[in-house]
Each structure stands twice: as C-alpha cells, then as structure tokens.
C-alpha cells in the first residue's frame, strides 16, 4: 500500500528579481485586514471620516450659510470665542483619530505581526530566501505605517478636500496648513509607535506582555515625567509624558504651539519622538538579526 502522491514538477517559468520587501509589505497589509479587531478599528476610522463629510454635506444642504451662522453664534454667546470650522477644528478631529484609532491599531497590528512571526519561527523561513533583516523590517514597518495612514490620514484628508470644495472663497487661507500638519504629525507618531511596539514585542515575545508593557509605559511615563519636571523645575522633562508629547507634536505641526508654562516645547517633543524611533529601529534590527541568524 505504497503512498502515491500527485507528482512534483519542475518550474520553468520566468523568475523575477523584484525586491522582497514588496511581498512582505502586501502580506503584512493582508494580515492586518484579516484580524478582527484591526478591521474594526480601521472601519471606525473610515466611518468617522465618511460620517463627518456626510454631516457637513447635510448641513450644507439645509443651511448653506452655516459657516456664518456658526461664527455669529460664537460671538453671540458672549465669551469672545470665535466658533469657526478652521484649522482648530481639524486639530480636534486629529485628536479624534490619534487616540481611538491610531493608538489601538498600532498596538494591535504591531505586536500581532512581530509576535506572530516569532511564535511561528517565520524568520527562519524568510532569511533562507533573498531577504535581509533590513528588507524584512522595511517591509513590515512600511506596511504597518501605510495601514495606519490609511485608517487615519486618508479619512482626514478626505474631510479636508470635502470642506475645501464646499467652502466659500477665502476659506482655503484658513486651512491651508492643515494637510501638512496632519501628515507630519500622524507620520511621525505612526513611525514612532510602530517601531517602538515592534521593538517591545521582540523583547517580550508575546502580545499580552507587550500590551501590559505599553500600558505601563504610557502611565509610568506620565508619572516619571511629572517627577523629573518637578524635581528639576524644568518643564521640558514633560516630553517624557507620552500623551502630552503626542499632543504637543500634533499642536505644533497644526500651527497651534502650546506656549503655556509647564508644557513641553514642540521641537523637544519632535526630537524625542525621532530619538525613540531611531533607538527602536536599531534594537529591532539587532534582535531580528540575532534571533534569525544565530539560533
């Protein structure tokens, strides 16, 4: 009762020299979409974008002069504040995307990918093929980042374009800095988060521990930032505080640097995030090389 398998055949077709990071990129993207919670948060981001434009469109249809009415209402309230759908509104929207969408997505996707690869020993399958640790990290991080941007930056820009196309002349001047601000802030934060989370996961090797470590980091950073800042009487230590740092970066790029005393400076925060990214990248590369090449 010999075992008869369908036959093996040699492959005579063309072989490409395409770089290996592209399939890794696509696979990463697909794996993100395959995971239930990642899909939910992505849809949440897209839904907020679509919902906002639908809302704007509806208001536009019912009250074509809503922008003026809003301004008048602001003045009428007597608090001297001007209510306008301008760059400030986009800052609010940006926060809406940063915390409930970008952050959970980065965590879910980031640790799932790296922890999954470590668990299934995928690195050994990759590195005996034309893949170097650099290609691997590039493909993974690039895909992670573009996924995050798809879920956050894309809907925000969509709102912006919609806003611009329905607004009266002159509105462009008030929101001209917005696309740059959105892209810069989301990209920097996205890069930092995806590298940091991947690096953390190579250390903890499990999703649960990464999530716990991150929670600890977010809360702990607040505590230590306060401590250092009060000991040294130097507000710039507050760049360590995770959420404040994200806020400061978003504010700065959007053109509303927070000059309040006791708040960390914008440049310092950007530099801090860039530093965290570089350190994470260096650590990630080192771990990937070691776990794959010597085992």
């Amino acid at each position: 009762m010999a075992f008869r398998a369908p036959d093996y055949s040699r492959f005579a077709g063309p072989r490409s020299r395409a770089p290996a990071w592209w399939p890794i990129w696509r696979m990463t993207f697909r794996r993100g979409w395959n995971s239930v919670w990642v899909k939910r948060f992505t849809l949440l981001g897209l839904a907020i974008g679509l919902g906002t434009t639908v809302l704007l469109y509806g208001v536009q249809q019912v009250l074509p002069e809503w922008r003026e009415l809003l301004e008048a209402a602001g003045e009428g309230s007597g608090q001297g504040e001007v209510l306008r759908f301008d760059a400030g509104a986009y800052l609010v929207l940006l926060r809406l995307f940063l915390y409930p969408v970008l952050l959970p997505l980065a965590v879910l996707l980031g640790y799932d990918l790296i922890a999954g690869d470590l668990r299934s020993n995928a690195l050994e399958s990759y590195f005996c093929r034309p893949v170097t640790p650099w290609t691997y990290v590039l493909g993974r991080t690039g895909a992670l980042l573009s996924y995050l941007m798809l879920a956050t930056l894309a809907p925000l820009l969509w709102i912006w374009i919609f806003d611009l196309s329905t607004a009266p002349e002159g509105h462009f001047e008030t929101i001209r800095r917005v696309p740059f601000g959105l892209s810069a802030s989301l990209l920097l934060t996205g890069v930092t988060l995806s590298l940091l989370i991947q690096a953390l996961t190579t250390l903890t090797r499990s999703g649960t521990w990464t999530a716990l470590a991150l929670a600890g980091l977010f809360l702990g950073s607040e505590f230590f930032a306060n401590m250092f800042a009060s000991i040294n009487q130097e507000p710039d230590f507050r760049i360590l505080a995770f959420f404040e740092n994200l806020d400061a970066v978003a504010n700065g790029f959007m053109g509303f640097p927070d000059e309040t005393a006791g708040r960390p400076g914008f440049e310092a925060c950007v530099a801090f995030q860039a530093g965290v990214s570089l350190l994470s990248l260096a650590y990630l590369l080192r771990r990937v090389k070691r776990s794959a090449l010597v085992g």
Binding site: D112, N121, A122, E124, S125
Partner: peptide, 9 residues
C-alpha cells in the same frame, strides 16, 4: 529547517 516554521495569520 529543523524547527517548525511558517507564516502565521
């Protein structure tokens, strides 16, 4: 390889 290895997910 000797150890199990595959692409997860």
């Amino acid at each position: 390889p000797e150890r199990d290895s595959w692409i997860g997910g």
